[in-house]
């Protein structure tokens, strides 16, 4: 197992190299550069723009820029500076990343916290009106674009005052007690987490339902029932444990998508995450900030996939990587 993990980590290096090269080339292919839009400001002269272009090193050919970028990473672990903020890329990204992860984890809690019990409920009452209603609601939610569901929930919040209209913290956050701060964060987190979390709910719920139904048809379940065991014990003690097995793998894979899944919600709910930062960086062609965000998202994705593979081995004794 250890050698497997080590091997996977070694594989990350060429992968990240490839991703960075591809991102850099795509950024170069996009028309213009960071200073391009500034050219439309009549107050800024071509001389200023040329001076800035030299300061940023944007006047050099792209392969030299990329070479310098790689060299700074390898020698100094320096990922460059954001053009617009005059700050190291990692300082800029760090905070956004933690906020995005907070939202993503809360969304995962919503998805899985609802998908598993509802999936079980639907499986136990297969073809009943409960099963059908749950599927209907889940699929309606699946088919509403996040941007619409987000705005609808924001409207609800604005009308009722039950929830804040976007943002991550109240204005008075700093004056609150520790418990008050946690409550304030949770209160702000509720709607965006709901929007992001409910999208994959339909498929997760159907998978849970399907898994459990498969297991319930197996012989050992029939045996358990024929022994006269209580139906609750049969389902929750004998069937459910095996039915959850594939869900664990699936859970591992969704870890990888955590960072990229909430961009739309971040913008609608003014959530200060990595998605907004990246979008802003792409629109202004703040190239090292884009590079930093893409690499960061890639690392999270790769690690998420690794965890998924490991979870699979842990959960299923038939799988071994040695």
């Amino acid at each position: 197992m250890k050698t497997y993990i080590l091997r996977r980590f070694v594989q990350i290096i060429p992968l990240l190299f490839g991703i960075s090269a591809l991102t850099f080339i795509l950024l170069q292919l996009a028309p213009g550069d960071f200073l391009n839009q500034m050219g439309e400001n009549p107050a800024i002269s071509p001389a200023t723009i040329e001076a800035m272009r030299r300061n940023f090193g944007l006047d050099r050919p792209w392969y030299i820029q990329y070479g310098l970028y790689l060299r700074n990473i390898l020698l100094h672990f320096d990922f460059g500076e954001s053009f617009s903020r005059h700050q190291p890329v990692f300082t800029v990204i760090r905070e956004g990343l933690s906020n995005t992860l907070m939202l993503a984890v809360a969304a995962a809690v919503v998805t899985w916290g609802l998908a598993i019990p509802l999936g079980i409920w639907a499986a136990v009452r297969q073809y009943s009106w409960i099963d059908k209603t749950l599927s209907l609601i889940a699929f309606i939610w699946l088919s509403i674009p996040e941007i619409l569901s987000g705005l609808l929930l924001l409207m609800l919040a604005a009308r009722t005052g039950w929830f804040p209209v976007g943002g991550m913290r109240s204005i008075d956050y700093d004056d609150l007690t520790a418990i008050g701060r946690v409550r304030d964060l949770a209160w702000h987190l509720a709607l965006p987490a709901l929007v992001v979390g409910l999208v994959p709910l339909a498929s997760r719920m159907r998978q849970m339902r399907g898994n459990l139904l498969d297991v319930l048809r197996l012989d050992y379940v029939t045996t358990a029932r024929s022994k006269g065991l209580d139906e609750g014990v049969v389902i929750y003690k004998h069937a459910l444990r095996n039915a959850l097995n594939p869900m664990i793998t699936l859970f591992g894979y969704t870890l990888g998508a955590l960072v990229s899944g909430s961009f739309v919600a971040e913008i609608i709910f003014s959530w200060p995450g990595l998605g907004r930062l990246t979008l802003d960086a792409i629109l202004t062609q703040d190239q090292y900030l884009v590079m930093g965000s893409v690499l960061m998202a890639s690392v999270v994705l790769i690690i998420g996939n690794l965890i998924a593979d490991l979870l699979l081995a842990v959960a299923d004794p038939r799988i071994s990587y040695d």
Partner: peptide, 30 residues
């Protein structure tokens, strides 16, 4: 091993309930 995984997921379920309550209770401030 499967047993451990199952328990963990159920623990997460408990978390979700607490989270929803907190979210609904905290309705002051902003």
């Amino acid at each position: 091993m499967a047993r451990v995984g199952g328990v963990r997921t159920l623990a997460a379920l408990g978390c979700a309930a607490a989270f929803v309550c907190m979210a609904a209770c905290g309705s002051e401030g902003d």
